[in-house]
Amino acid sequence: MARRAIPIAAAQPRSNAFDYLSTKKDELVGWARKFSLFPYPFVTACCAMEFMAVSSSPYDTDRFGAALPRFSPRQSDLLMVVGTVTHKQAPILLKVYEQMCEPKWVMAFGACATSGGFYQNYAAVAGIDRIIPVDIYVPGCPPRPETVIDAIMMLQDRIARDHHPIVTETF
């Protein structure tokens, strides 16, 4: 998971009714969040071609509510790291990730973002999960648009099943 949920310490023993209501609340919030993903396309390399293809008419991520990119990390919740991240780019990636607000998810789009791809040298970071936590890895060099859609749907399932504490100790 991209972030840790901090549960509220209950003032009194939790009843079944409370559990039922909070599960329903989680389902509702999960449904809303999964169908309104605002991606931040952190685009670097060749995978950009497939990212453009998956966002456009033939494949269309708009069907999943995930088409509208927000190019400010403050306004987005899905960081799609599309392409190779090099050591020169790594501080920028970390800064963008840290500027995003909770809840946020990270998609490692493509082989280079997942593991460095076939660039095993001084320049490329061998997978962005060495720098930031990743929720879903999309294999392929570059991945077919169908693979990306599959990944978005898997991520949506995870968001739907997730625990969504709306009010936490820190908020």
Binding site: H87, P91, Y122, I131, I132
Partner: peptide, 12 residues
């Protein structure tokens, strides 16, 4: 070739 010089501390 694989002598990396990272700018960001690795998580793992």
């Amino acid at each position: 070739k694989q002598d990396e010089q990272p700018l960001v501390r690795y998580r793992r």
